[in-house]
């Protein structure tokens, strides 16, 4: 099964307090979004890559256009709103993979694994969650939380959702994959997150 990937890069990135748009922030010398694009490109099960941008991220859009990536421009009113807009705009009535642009350790192998898990679970959506304590133990921030089977988790932003359900409406049954793998463990919301992730990732992977 091959699915298209939507790289979500339209957020305001308020918490990082930087003049540079968050997706373009250098992480160990390379912009965050470039790392995510490389991961998506190296995944075997991704059919095409879209970058979802907004008026908050004009330079990101420019950089992605230079890389000949497809851009889907949205209002930038939040992750869910932007995703819905993108799905409607492109009439994506099949499963799509969403990837946030702030996961510096993401790999194609991990994304392929998520797609395989989605297939195996056979639900209309799959959410990737990170145990709250795994992030907290490293001193990383948690931007949004969600409950699954009575337990709160950190939302990783990596999801697969069947666009058909979004377009047609109705209840979406979601499966979950819970993991502390570094690909989703290190997400960058604040400058402190960036410092912690740079310090630790250097130690464990070649990045």
């Amino acid at each position: 099964m091959k699915v298209p990937a939507l790289i979500m890069a339209g957020g305001k990135g308020r918490r990082i307090g930087s003049k540079i748009e968050k997706p373009l922030l250098p992480f160990l010398g390379k912009p965050l979004i470039e790392r995510v694009i490389e991961a998506a490109r190296s995944a075997k099960n991704i059919s095409e890559i879209y970058v979802v941008t907004s008026d908050y991220t004009p330079q990101t859009e420019e950089e992605c256009l230079k890389k000949k990536l497809k851009i889907l421009k949205t209002d930038g009113k939040g992750y869910h709103n932007d995703l819905k807009q993108a799905i409607i705009k492109e009439k994506l009535n099949f499963p799509i993979l969403t990837i946030p642009s702030d996961l510096p350790a993401l790999t194609g192998r991990f994304l392929d694994k998520i797609i395989r898990i989605f297939e195996r679970k056979g639900k209309n959506a799959l959410a990737v969650f990170v145990p709250l304590e795994s992030r907290e133990l490293l001193g990383l921030s948690v931007s949004s939380k969600d409950e699954f089977e009575g337990i709160l988790y950190a939302v990783s932003g990596v999801n697969i959702i069947n666009g058909k359900k979004t377009l047609n409406g109705g209840k979406i049954e979601t499966a979950a994959y819970i993991t502390d793998e570094i690909e989703v463990l290190f997400n960058i919301n604040t400058q402190k997150d960036l410092d912690i992730a740079e310090k630790n990732l250097k130690r464990i992977v070649e990045i």
């Binding site: 133990l137 463990l185 630790n200 464990i204």
Partner: peptide
Amino acid sequence: THTGLGSV
């Protein structure tokens, strides 16, 4: 066991 919190 895998590259996660434990490996850090």
